[in-house]
């Protein structure tokens, strides 16, 4: 048994956690989210380079959240998701034990959220090279070309909301698309309905997105939808110097006024 299994087994045995959220072997060589509730299930947890999925969205999922205390096996994306959720008061100290696996494969058991911040302090977040490449390509386009690119991509959207469900920060109990009085966003998966949905989501995530790219990964029709919030995160870093999901006390950049905020976008 590897370290992760031993730690999970111990946490379950001592009652420090009722469930350990982690990764297990999936279909045909893939990995899947796995949930250890007993010793037998703890033995089946794995961690290797295939475990890139951000699991933070399971923390507030209705079927899991009542089981708090939770423990969660975490890569950097998951750590950032947890920190962001904490900064938005969705997780408090003591709710969750985080089992961060660092670059050397060591398991770092974080019982306090501040310990996660210490782990993150040593990390410089980077986006995937292929995402950077496509963002550069989009940046080089004229606004009209960029519009055409997104309109063409949006045509394939089927409004399955996998992007929303996979997102660690889409935790609203009632999403704007589920409000029908008034109907803010058209329900149909047509051009305007799709555009309004994705623009609303990107705007709602701006300054909050932890750049895990899970929305794009989840998309069953391969729309690179993660590039919208990721690009906005880049803009916010450039303008305000803030990066989401690194520190609990970080400001909610776009919903906080500071006297020295730049105002050069006006006029």
């Amino acid at each position: 048994m590897g370290a992760i299994n031993e730690i999970a087994a111990r946490l379950l045995e001592t009652g420090e956690a009722k469930v350990v959220i982690g990764y297990g072997e999936g279909s045909f060589g893939s990995v899947r989210p796995a949930f250890a509730r007993n010793q037998e299930e703890a033995e089946k947890l794995i961690y290797d380079k295939r475990c890139t999925q951000n699991l933070a969205m399971y923390v507030y999922k209705k079927e899991i959240s009542p089981l708090r205390k939770l423990a969660i096996v975490a890569n950097v994306s998951t750590l950032r998701g947890i920190i962001r959720l904490a900064s938005e008061n969705q997780i408090k100290n003591g709710d969750i034990i985080t089992l961060y696996i660092n670059e050397l494969g060591e398991v770092i058991e974080c019982k306090a959220l501040s310990e996660i911040e210490i782990c993150l302090a040593e990390i410089t977040p980077e986006i995937k090279p292929e995402d950077k490449e496509l963002i550069d390509k989009l940046d080089a386009m004229t606004p009209q070309e960029r519009w055409n690119f997104w309109i063409s991509e949006m045509e394939s959207c089927i409004k399955c909301y996998a992007c929303r469900q996979a997102c660690p920060l889409c935790y609203c109990t009632q999403c704007a698309v589920e409000v029908n009085q008034p109907q803010w966003i058209p329900v149909a998966a047509n051009t305007s309905g799709n555009l309004e949905w994705h623009i609303t989501r990107a705007m709602h995530l701006s300054g909050r997105c932890v750049e895990c790219g899970q929305c794009g990964e989840a998309c069953p029709v391969n729309i690179p939808i993660h590039l919208l919030p990721i690009k906005l995160a880049e803009e916010i870093k450039n303008i305000y110097g803030t990066v989401s999901g690194m520190k609990i006390q970080e400001s909610n950049t776009l919903s906080t006024f500071k006297p020295d905020d730049k105002e050069n976008f006006i006029g």
């Binding site: 469930v19 949930f35 089927i158």
Partner: peptide, 15 residues
């Protein structure tokens, strides 16, 4: 176990 893992999107039904 499925209750915990399934994230509740509609991808399966739509494809």
């Amino acid at each position: 176990e499925y209750a915990m893992r399934c994230m509740g999107c509609s991808a399966c039904a739509f494809v």
